[in-house]
Amino acid sequence: MAEVNLLAESVKFMLLGMGVVYLFLYIVILAVKLQAYLINKYFPETTPASTAKKPAPSRTDEDEKARIAAIVAAVNEFCKNKS
């Protein structure tokens, strides 16, 4: 077999490999920026969705508070009766 300079070969691998990795990631970065621009332009941030969502959790929050209060009261009553 002809003498192959393995070291030179591996350096070539390195250049190719790092080049492709960077190229790939750079293209992905551009694509991500483009998609962020397009999506935010044509499908603007979901403000209606967030306003529609909000009332529901707040109501359940209050329910939850009321329930906890009821439980605490009941437990207190129970403890008082016991002692």
Binding site: S10, M14, G17, M18, V21, L25, Y26, I29, V32
Partner: peptide, 17 residues
């Protein structure tokens, strides 16, 4: 920051040498 993920791949190709 994706470029940083690329730079770290030097670990692969540098150690290849």
């Amino acid at each position: 920051t994706a470029l940083l993920g690329g730079a770290a791949q030097f670990g692969i190709f540098g150690s290849l040498v």
